[in-house]
Simulated assay, not measured.
Amino acid sequence: MTRVTEPAQAAVRTPPLLNAANLLTGARLLLVPVFVALVVVSQMTRPGWQIAACVVFLIASMTDLLDGWIARRFDLVTSFGKVADPIADKALTGAALVLLSWYDLLPWWVTALILVREWGVTAIRFWVIRYGVIAASHGGKVKTALQIAAIVWYLLPLPAALAAVGPWVMGAAVLVTVVTGIDYVLRAVRLRSRD
C-alpha cells in the first residue's frame, strides 16, 4: 500500500526583527533627541549649531525614505517596523515643529494643525488595520517632501530675502497636509464600510 503524503506547505518566511530597515527606523528614533539638543543649543540664533541641527534632521529624514524602500524591496516588513516607523516619523516632525514654534519662528496653530493631522492619520491606520492597509498616496509623499523642505528652510540661518520664502513653503505643506488628511479619512471610511 502506497502512502500518500500531503504536499508540504510553503514555509512562511518571517523576516528577522534585527534587519536593515528596522535598524534605520531605530536610528531615526535615536536621532530625535540629538536633533532636539542641537536646536536647543543653537537657540535658533547660532548659525553653526543651526546648520548642525539641520544636517541631523536631513539625515534622519533620509532614513525614512530608505527604511521603507529596503523593507519592501527585500521583504523585511515586520510588525515592529509597521508600528515604529510612523512613530519615528511623527516624533521627528513633531519635535521640529514644536521647537520652531517655541522659538517663535512658526505660529503655534500651524504646528497644532499638522500634528493633529499626523497623529490622527496614525490613529486611523490602527482603526482600520484589520480591514486592510491604506497605501500611501502620491499626495502623502508630496506632503512629506514639503514638510521636510519647509522645516529645513526654517532651520537654516538664511539671509532675510531667502528666509521670507519659508512661510510660502510651509503654507504649501499645510495645504497638502490638510487635503491628504481629508483624503485619508475618506479612504478609511470606505474601507471600513465594505465590511
Score class of each variant (00 low, 15 high):
residue 2 T to M: 12
residue 4 V to M: 11
residue 5 T to E: 15
residue 6 E to G: 01
residue 9 Q to L: 08
residue 11 A to E: 14
residue 12 V to E: 13
residue 12 V to K: 12
residue 13 R to E: 10
residue 14 T to R: 13
residue 14 T to L: 13
residue 15 P to C: 08
residue 16 P to F: 13
residue 16 P to K: 12
residue 16 P to T: 09
residue 18 L to V: 13
residue 19 N to K: 05
residue 20 A to H: 05
residue 20 A to P: 01
residue 23 L to A: 13
residue 23 L to E: 08
residue 23 L to P: 02
residue 23 L to T: 07
residue 23 L to R: 08
residue 25 T to E: 00
residue 27 A to L: 02
residue 28 R to L: 03
residue 30 L to T: 07
residue 34 V to P: 02
residue 35 F to G: 01
residue 36 V to R: 05
residue 38 L to D: 01
residue 40 V to W: 05
residue 40 V to Q: 07
residue 46 R to Y: 07
residue 46 R to G: 03
residue 47 P to Y: 10
residue 48 G to L: 03
residue 50 Q to S: 07
residue 50 Q to Y: 04
residue 55 V to D: 03
residue 59 I to E: 03
residue 61 S to A: 15
residue 62 M to T: 10
residue 64 D to E: 09
residue 66 L to K: 03
residue 68 G to W: 08
residue 69 W to A: 15
residue 69 W to N: 13
residue 71 A to K: 09
residue 72 R to K: 11
residue 79 S to G: 14
residue 80 F to H: 04
residue 80 F to C: 07
residue 81 G to W: 00
residue 81 G to V: 03
residue 81 G to R: 01
residue 82 K to C: 11
residue 82 K to R: 15
residue 83 V to C: 07
residue 83 V to Y: 06
residue 83 V to M: 13
residue 84 A to C: 02
residue 85 D to V: 06
residue 86 P to T: 01
residue 87 I to N: 05
residue 87 I to D: 03
residue 88 A to N: 00
residue 89 D to H: 11
residue 90 K to A: 14
residue 91 A to T: 04
residue 91 A to V: 04
residue 92 L to C: 11
residue 92 L to H: 07
residue 94 G to Y: 03
residue 94 G to N: 05
residue 96 A to F: 11
residue 96 A to Q: 09
residue 98 V to I: 15
residue 98 V to F: 10
residue 99 L to R: 00
residue 100 L to K: 04
residue 101 S to G: 11
residue 101 S to A: 14
residue 102 W to D: 05
residue 103 Y to F: 09
residue 105 L to R: 14
residue 105 L to F: 05
residue 107 P to H: 10
residue 109 W to L: 03
residue 111 T to I: 05
residue 113 L to C: 15
residue 113 L to K: 13
residue 116 V to W: 05
residue 116 V to Y: 05
residue 118 E to P: 01
residue 121 V to S: 09
residue 121 V to F: 07
residue 122 T to M: 12
residue 125 R to W: 08
residue 127 W to Q: 08
residue 127 W to G: 06
residue 129 I to Y: 05
residue 134 I to Y: 06
residue 136 A to E: 05
residue 136 A to H: 05
residue 137 S to F: 10
residue 138 H to F: 14
residue 138 H to T: 14
residue 140 G to Q: 05
residue 141 K to D: 06
residue 142 V to K: 02
residue 143 K to D: 04
residue 145 A to R: 07
residue 146 L to Q: 00
residue 146 L to V: 00
residue 149 A to K: 04
residue 149 A to G: 08
residue 151 I to T: 10
residue 152 V to W: 08
residue 153 W to S: 11
residue 155 L to K: 00
residue 157 P to A: 11
residue 158 L to A: 02
residue 160 A to D: 14
residue 161 A to C: 04
residue 164 A to V: 04
residue 165 V to M: 12
residue 166 G to C: 06
residue 166 G to E: 01
residue 167 P to I: 01
residue 170 M to L: 09
residue 170 M to H: 02
residue 170 M to Y: 02
residue 170 M to I: 06
residue 172 A to E: 00
residue 172 A to C: 03
residue 174 V to N: 08
residue 174 V to W: 06
residue 176 V to P: 01
residue 181 G to S: 14
residue 182 I to K: 11
residue 184 Y to K: 11
residue 184 Y to P: 06
residue 186 L to E: 14
residue 186 L to N: 14
residue 186 L to D: 13
residue 186 L to G: 09
residue 187 R to K: 15
residue 187 R to V: 09
residue 188 A to F: 04
residue 189 V to E: 12
residue 189 V to D: 11
residue 195 D to Q: 15
